[in-house]
Amino acid sequence: MGIFDIIGPVMIGPSSSHTAGAARIGLLAHYILKEKPVQAAITFFGSFAKTYRGHGTDKAIIAGLLGYSADDPALREAFSLAKKANLTVSINTSENESNHPNTAQLQLVGCNGKKLDIVGISLGGGKVSISQINGFDCDVSGENYTLLSVYNDQSGVVSLVSSFIAEKNINISQMRVFRKGKHKQAVMIIETDGQIPNEIVDKISSLPIMHSVIAIDPL
């Protein structure tokens, strides 16, 4: 922990977990959707469900979806910004149990028809994790350079992708693979110390087994 975690983070109030964390969940969803969102059905669970109005959790997630960061005063005006951007929003709460008290589910449709179902959890102090993408368990924090690849599970993919990254002398700090079963769809999450250049992202995307590849800079 550095001193700018003590004198910081810089954020829009009132709560690092319920406001700043929510904005980061929205922003990560914005990057993962990779196209302008036109529909967002947001469901809050646990403490988010009980306190989202007072904490501006709804505004924060919407602003994030529109690409605003957690310290942008635009968070306050998120509903009117959504209207201007032709984003239709519905907010729901659920009394169902969730694994974490601060959980939000985002069901999104992009302007090109892409659908995305994301579950995000806010871990406290503004730290978050995307814990599910389209039904896959995963863990994306947005704290490091992240490469998210969805592909058909088969041997050799991990080594191929990591060799492309190694070509550019980029150090992999963390790597996790989540899959629905042997030879079924899999998600590989690679975190690196440096930014992965576009040419490498394109090279990985062009592998025939890849469904989608998304590179995310630290939030």
Binding site: I6, I7, M11, I12, G13, S15, A20, K59, L75, G125
Partner: peptide
């Protein structure tokens, strides 16, 4: 201001900013 969604520096937290 924090309670009214203004920009603050958490110090060390938003609640004690």
């Amino acid at each position: 201001g924090n309670a009214k969604m203004h920009k603050i520096v958490a110090c060390p937290t938003a609640g004690s900013c």
